[in-house]
Amino acid sequence: MASINTFTIVGNVTKDVELRHMPSGTPSATFTVAVDNVYFDRDGKKHEEADFIPVTTYGKQAENDAKFLKKGSTVAVMGRIRSWYKPAERKGGFNFEAERVQYLGKPNSNRAGGDAGQQQGPGNAEHDDWIRDYDNAEQGVRR
């Protein structure tokens, strides 16, 4: 019997990424992605909700996420779901472990505020440095 364990989400980062290091020294980043959920009930009334998905990345991807993702950044995340259970505490849950993170949108002068606001135009040194660093980091992840 074949098994499939994947998830794909697109949404906005709810707060700046937290970068930590595991005891082995491997970088680990955690962040939460807000994903909109819109549906209509039987009466045709529109309902809007948001799901908040905790995401974990490791290694070079984690370092890049901590560097490039900020609160409000739009991101697409693909990965696998891992469950956990602590019998002594009778609690459990799920971890969403990213295998691929794609940064969506363009950088702007108000990074702390996310992707809203005016985007920087070509020729801006800060903008060019960000794009160069981003491109170099993406090349490092794909190797």
Rank of each mutant, 00 (worst) to 15 (best):
A34M: 07
G113N: 15
A76N: 07
V55N: 03
T6E: 14
D135V: 15
M22L: 15
V38G: 00
T74M: 14
L104H: 13
G121Q: 14
Q120H: 00
G79K: 02
S3Y: 13
E97F: 05
Q118H: 01
G117Y: 07
L19R: 09
Y103M: 11
G123R: 13
W130A: 12
T6N: 13
P27G: 02
D129E: 14
E18N: 04
W84T: 01
I9C: 05
R80I: 03
N37K: 15
E18T: 14
D41Q: 08
F40I: 00
A2F: 12
R20Y: 03
D36T: 11
I131P: 03
Y103F: 15
N64R: 15
G121K: 14
G114P: 04
T26N: 13
A2G: 07
G93I: 03
A29Q: 02
K67D: 04
P122R: 03
D115V: 13
N108I: 02
P107W: 06
D133Y: 01
W84S: 01
N12R: 14
V141Q: 05
S24H: 04
R42P: 00
A29G: 04
V141Y: 12
T74C: 12
H47I: 08
V33G: 04
E99R: 13
S109I: 04
V35I: 06
E126C: 00
E48C: 01
W130M: 11
T32C: 10
G113S: 09
G25H: 10
S28M: 14
D36L: 07
R132M: 10
M78N: 13
Q118M: 06
N124F: 05
F52E: 05
N37C: 09
N136H: 12
K70T: 15
T56L: 02
A76Y: 03
I53P: 03
I9P: 03
Q61F: 01
T6Q: 14
P27N: 01
E99Q: 15
W84G: 01
V141C: 00
G44A: 10
V33L: 09
E99V: 00
V38R: 14
K86H: 09
G114M: 10
K91E: 02
E48H: 12
H127L: 07
P23H: 00
N12Y: 08
G79R: 04
A137T: 01
D115T: 11
T26M: 11
D51G: 11
R82E: 09
